[in-house]
């Protein structure tokens, strides 16, 4: 895979353009939503929403600061969902994206249980239900196009076009040059011990790390984990 995402959430302005572009390209219906206290909308991912921007508030220099994080499939290097699927309906393409072949799926939903980030979603209302998740716009990638969310992002949050190695270098540079701007961790480089992504790395706001999905136990023990990684664990 030549190109991957570098998602720098400190650049995000919360316009949700990526959510809209994702829905447009995948022709997913809109959700019926209402304003929630957090302003995250839709509150959670579902079968019609592959990505959403998580709104949250934190305090910075005594002022209220509104920050964002992005939810969606990480396209893990060794995806739990793929290893769980009994019929290889979910599979990891050689280009990197984890995609879904609906015609094979039996609907056992083991992938939903297996994913540590609760990403695969199920069409509960359908009589012929499918699993739904971000495909990294695999068909666009094959056509040498940019994924819809990256194409539409106006603030430069979603950077697409470099290899994962270059993006990792760039992420490390940003972390070291801007102390305090980020939570000191590259999401997707190593996460949950083994499931690193080869398509997406996220840089997040300092206040966010305990709010992210998945890896509940390990987050509580975050600093011990960090030291373990530093030792090459």
């Amino acid at each position: 895979m030549e190109s991957s995402f570098l998602i720098d959430m400190t650049k995000c302005n919360g316009c949700r353009g990526c959510q809209v572009a994702c829905k447009q390209w995948n022709q997913n219906q809109a959700d019926k939503t209402k304003i929630s206290p957090k302003f995250t909308n839709p509150v959670k991912l579902n079968a019609k929403t592959y990505t959403n921007i998580d709104f949250f508030e934190s305090e910075k220099d005594g002022h209220l600061s509104r920050n964002f994080a992005r939810n969606g499939c990480f396209h893990c290097k060794k995806p739990s969902c793929v290893s769980a699927c009994p019929v290889a309906a979910l599979f990891k393409t050689k280009e990197g994206p984890v995609i879904y072949r609906a015609e094979r799926c039996i609907g056992c939903r083991y992938c939903m249980l297996a994913c540590p980030f609760n990403i695969p979603k199920f069409e509960w209302e359908s009589i012929s239900p499918r699993i739904q998740k971000c495909t990294f716009c695999h068909e666009r990638i094959l056509d040498n196009k940019i994924p819809a969310c990256a194409k539409t992002c106006p603030s430069g949050t979603i950077h697409f076009g470099d290899s994962i190695e270059n993006n990792l270098k760039e992420a490390r540079r940003r972390l070291s040059e801007n102390p305090g701007r980020y939570f000191n961790h590259i999401y997707g480089e190593r996460r949950c011990g083994s499931s690193r992504s080869d398509l997406e790395i996220h840089l997040r706001h300092p206040g966010h790390h305990r709010r992210s999905t998945g890896c509940r136990h390990r987050q509580l023990d975050y600093h011990a984990q960090e030291q373990k990684y530093a030792r090459g664990g």
Binding site: S83, P86, V87, A88, G107, F122
Partner: peptide, 19 residues
């Protein structure tokens, strides 16, 4: 979700899956 595809695992092997 797809009861009529219950036979799929017999022909679509994915030997890394516990399921």
């Amino acid at each position: 979700g797809h009861p009529m595809r219950i036979w799929h695992p017999m022909v679509m092997w994915q030997i890394r899956s516990v399921m």
